[in-house]
């Protein structure tokens, strides 16, 4: 980021009409006015340089304080209370009860496990496919813009619209996917929503569909930044295309891959819309035996179906702690990789 630019041709700013800002004090004797104006101007200049940066960042921080920081702390605070949606004013301090209760709560552990498995079966294939597609898109192609835009269209489709279509396609009796499987020789129609694995695969497929194109573009951008001569010298050494991919592309992409893993993991931890709508009416249960209930769904169920806002707050904080753990683990892995490859 330190590449400060010295060439002025880059951005041509409109010439600022020197000092045309409003000035005070017209109609007084000339020299006194000039002197006063000069003093006023320098004071204004100092004030401008000192205070305006804060004015520029303050809208962001005011909104962040009101809608980000305050709720964050408040969530932590209310996780120590019993707060019911039916009677918001009656709070009762319960200490760590909401948390200890969570530890003994089989549905919490179930949701944690589901969030993890759905996270794995949606993130791993998604990133692998994206890596392969980015590699292909990095060739000299006809219609490369078309491919890129087309693969990104799922990203423009909302969770709701995508899930509604996929739910129909995953239908048991008339769904297109069972129909296609039948033609491939599976005569038994899968009830996708009923099984643990089948429902989690269905939910994951929506996530994979929506996000693969996005990650492809991220990888493609990183691949295009790989210096050309690395490939040339690899080719001179007799490396095949696959070996070049394996030994040049992948190592050069390591920071980007870590970045996408972090982003996808954050997304997976918060997964909500896809299982919520895939479940149909009462979707926050995540299926009849909670087989695809994620932490996001469990939070919603506790807060807005069962009216236990204190418990919902505790779940929210548990999710946050989980994210912090993941971030810390990722930082350690990144550091370890750096040491191994550079030190």
């Amino acid at each position: 980021m330190a590449s400060e630019i010295s060439d002025m041709t880059a951005v041509t700013a409109p010439p600022s009409e020197g000092g045309a800002a409003p000035r005070g004090g017209s109609g007084r004797p000339r020299d006194a006015r000039d002197e006063r104006r000069g003093r006023w101007r320098s004071r204004r200049y100092r004030w401008d340089v000192k205070a305006m940066p804060y004015a520029f960042v303050s809208p962001f921080f005011l909104f962040f304080a009101a809608f980000g920081l305050f709720p964050l702390i408040y969530t932590g605070w209310s996780s120590f209370y019993r707060v019911e949606l039916t009677n918001l004013d009656a709070r009762e301090f319960v200490g760590f009860h909401n948390y200890t209760r969570l530890l003994e709560d089989e549905f919490f552990w179930n949701a944690l496990k589901n969030t993890f498995t759905i996270g794995v079966i949606s993130t791993v294939p998604q990133l692998l496919i994206a890596l392969g597609l980015a590699h292909l898109l990095n060739y000299k192609l006809r219609g490369s813009t078309f491919f890129r835009v087309a693969m990104l269209t799922p990203y423009a489709t909302s969770v709701a619209a995508a899930t509604l279509v996929f739910t129909l396609m995953f239908g048991t009796d008339y769904g297109m996917i069972n129909w296609a499987l039948e033609h491939l020789g599976f005569s038994h129609h899968i009830d996708w929503r009923a099984g643990t694995w089948s429902s989690q695969i269905a939910v994951s497929s929506i996530v994979i569909w929506r996000w693969t194109g996005y990650n492809t573009l991220i990888y493609l951008a990183a691949m295009q930044a790989v210096p050309h001569d690395l490939y040339e010298s690899a080719a001179l050494d007799g490396a095949s295309r696959w070996q070049q991919f394996r030994h040049v592309t992948i190592p050069m992409l390591r920071p980007t891959i870590l970045f996408t893993i972090v982003v996808s993991t954050i997304g997976a931890t918060q997964l909500f819309g896809e299982p919520f709508l895939f479940g149909g009416p009462g979707g926050e249960k995540g299926g009849s035996s909670h087989q695809f209930q994620t932490l996001g769904l469990y939070l919603y169920e506790q807060g807005w179906t069962n009216y236990h806002l204190g418990r919902a707050s505790a779940i929210a904080w548990a999710m946050f702690l989980l994210l912090l753990l993941i971030a810390a683990a990722n930082g350690l892995v990144a550091r370890w990789l750096r040491k191994n490859h550079e030190g």
């Binding site: 980000g68 209310s78 996001g296 999710m319 946050f320």
Partner: peptide
Amino acid sequence: MVPPQLSVVPLFLW
């Protein structure tokens, strides 16, 4: 890093 779920309860009360 802060997930939106974390602020949902107080925002809702608010």
